[in-house]
Write a protein that binds this DNA or RNA. Structure first.
Lengths: 146, 146
DNA sequence: ATAAATAATATCGCGCGCGATATATTGTTA
DNA sequence: TAACAATATATCGCGCGCGATATTATTTAT
């Protein structure tokens, strides 16, 4: 019985579980939008700045391009983004929002903050707790990112 | 530009990213053990209490049985667990460690705490920060678990 | 005791993540 | 400028997670 190997002492298990459960909490709203959580992340990146190469999106999300490329292909099939080859650098694929993808921002804004805050009503954490949590998570992310 | 839809304001994106990156940090040690992170979670559950039905393992990890069943099937092929039908309840599949699975605890103990603390050396978080983080994550997990 | 409801596990399909590898384009260097 | 290295993206294979559904065994109700 090594304390270091007990499930109840694992930070990583809690991160893994919390991430899964919170992502699941997004599902009802995202289903209404017709997308998944990783697709929603891509949309947030593009809502902030449209027309970005695959690499920039991947770097922003700290994902590999071999994860992002198929994600973008599925989003293209859904008609929410389009891809075109870069003009000065023909290796790049520039990813842009379609009208449908751009219009989804309004609907997301009307669904997601309200939907999440409703579900978070019973969570005992206060604003300052979330702020500290964000800083702690950023410390961990910065420690492990390449 | 809705602040609520900006990537930098998302707790969930940080949970998702931190979970991925910390799980990746386990990979070198787990590769040496020949297992994945979810398989390591199952082993921790069984090291604590051997011979459990699929449901108990799934509940402990807050996973669905349709995730755990194939995970256990792969672990059985690896020779680290065995499954047998319950005697009083023949619907159950009781999962037990093999000798190989039990012996992996020693090796895990020699590899993982040291390997992780080495990688965490550059992380600015202190013991009390981790303790608070654990409590905050537990609040979130308890809010969203069924 | 038999039918219906419930429970435990398994199967299927799909979307990630990611290591490994391939392809095409650009940059660099001899 | 020809060879080589580096870069951007894509493809492939596999292991999750999970919604939906199926199968088998147990429990409950009639």
């Amino acid at each position: 019985m090594y304390a270091e190997l007990q499930l109840d002492n694992q930070v990583c298990f809690r991160l893994y579980t919390a991430a899964r459960l919170v992502t699941q909490a997004y599902a009802p709203m995202l289903t209404e939008l017709g997308i998944t959580y990783p697709q929603y992340l891509v949309l947030m990146v593009l809502w902030e700045k449209d027309c970005q190469p695959v690499n920039d999106i991947a770097r922003r999300l700290l994902l590999e391009t071999n994860t992002v490329t198929p994600l973008l292909q599925r989003m293209e099939k859904l008609g929410i983004i389009s891809r075109k080859r870069g003009e000065q650098d023909k290796r790049q694929h520039l990813v842009s929002l379609t009208v449908k993808g751009r219009d989804m921002e309004q609907k997301a804004y009307s669904l997601i903050p309200a939907g999440m805050s409703e579900q978070l009503a019973s969570c005992p954490l206060k604003l300052e707790d979330y702020q500290r949590l964000v800083q702690e998570l950023d410390s961990i992310i910065n420690t492990f990112k390449k």
